[in-house]
């Protein structure tokens, strides 16, 4: 599976101004983050219903220059947050090609029905909440349990909470709701910071677990292990059930097998890595048997 290193910050909102974005990424690196996700927002409820377009979801923005620049320091993922009102979004999601280009997909429900749908049948990986309008929706126990069983993760943003008293109160309310309903399982912390000053170091974020009602371990996991799990889940959603996958990192050249392989050895390099899944562990014994026979 693809390597990612701790610590994780899975929500840095995308800004048109590349200079500001670069500042934020630089600050994140200096604080010790190794994996970050650039977040784009798509509002499904505001879409133009009169026009028919083949793919309603936007394609990920190109950040080639930034990716090149910080290649050695940080891994940049893409994330799409879908704001929606009703279950109609599920159909659009099922046959969209652009969605597969994103590493992570988050849902931001606006109504109670949407929230229940988000936890039970939504095709994304992450449930997030609107911070600006105040938390009016709270997860009920059943939906939360189903969400946890399906491997969904729930997000708490600390960046806006530092900025504003009301948002802080709402975020604490939200976090304690998770605590009451199901022992704060499957929670991750992310920044949602729009300027470098709002970012905090990973240990600071883990310490915030105290006011959000998580235990010390859960707090640390919320910036480390849980994010890795989320990434693995998202990856398996993207490429389906797999045992291994091959990724070419160069131009692919098809050659005759009779020719010597050394000629093309430099231009074609493949990375084979096996996915850390249950299927893998089940498959291995049988492979060994074949070899012995």
């Amino acid at each position: 599976m693809e390597q990612t290193k701790p610590f994780y910050d899975l929500c840095i909102p995308y800004q048109k101004d590349e200079k500001a974005l670069r500042e934020i990424i630089k600050e994140a690196i200096s604080l010790g983050y190794k994996t970050i996700a650039i977040d784009q927002v798509y509002d499904h409820s505001k879409r133009d219903t009169t026009k028919r377009v083949p793919d309603i979801f936007p394609a990920p923005v190109t950040l080639k220059q930034l990716e090149e620049e910080f290649k050695s320091d940080v891994k940049i993922l893409r994330r799409l947050t879908i704001i929606y009102l009703d279950v109609g979004v599920a159909h659009a999601m099922s046959n969209s090609q652009n969605l597969k280009k994103f590493n992570l997909i988050a849902g931001q429900p606006k109504t109670d029905a949407a929230l229940t749908h988000c936890c039970t049948t939504f095709g994304g990986d992450l449930v997030t909440f609107d911070t600006e309008a105040g938390v009016k929706l709270l997860v009920n126990r059943k939906a939360y349990q189903i969400g946890v069983k399906r491997g969904l993760y729930f997000e708490i943003k600390y960046g806006p909470a530092i900025r504003d008293t009301n948002i802080r109160k709402d975020m604490i309310k939200l976090a304690h709701n998770y605590c009451v309903r199901g022992k704060s399982k499957n929670l991750i912390f992310s920044s949602g910071a729009t300027n470098p000053f709002e970012l905090r170091g990973p240990y600071d974020v883990a310490n915030l677990a105290f006011i959000f009602g998580l235990s010390e371990d859960q707090g640390k996991n919320a910036v480390n292990k849980a994010c890795r799990q989320l990434f693995l889940r998202a990856e398996s959603r993207r490429i389906g059930k797999t045992i291994m996958f091959v990724k070419a990192s160069g131009p692919i050249i098809f050659t005759d097998t009779s020719e010597s392989e050394e000629e093309h050895g430099d231009s074609f390099r493949e990375e084979i890595s096996s996915e850390e899944s249950e299927i893998d562990s089940q498959e291995q014994p049988s492979k060994k048997k074949i070899k012995i026979l």
Binding site: I162, R168, F197, V205, N207, L208, F210
Partner: peptide, 26 residues
């Protein structure tokens, strides 16, 4: 110390300078 550690990230002003704390080690 848990109370202190969870308060540190929320601080945005130190004295009369806009600054933040970055916890390195406990």
């Amino acid at each position: 110390h848990r109370i202190v550690a969870s308060t540190l990230p929320l601080i945005t002003m130190i004295g009369d300078v806009r600054a933040k704390f970055h916890t390195l080690y406990t």
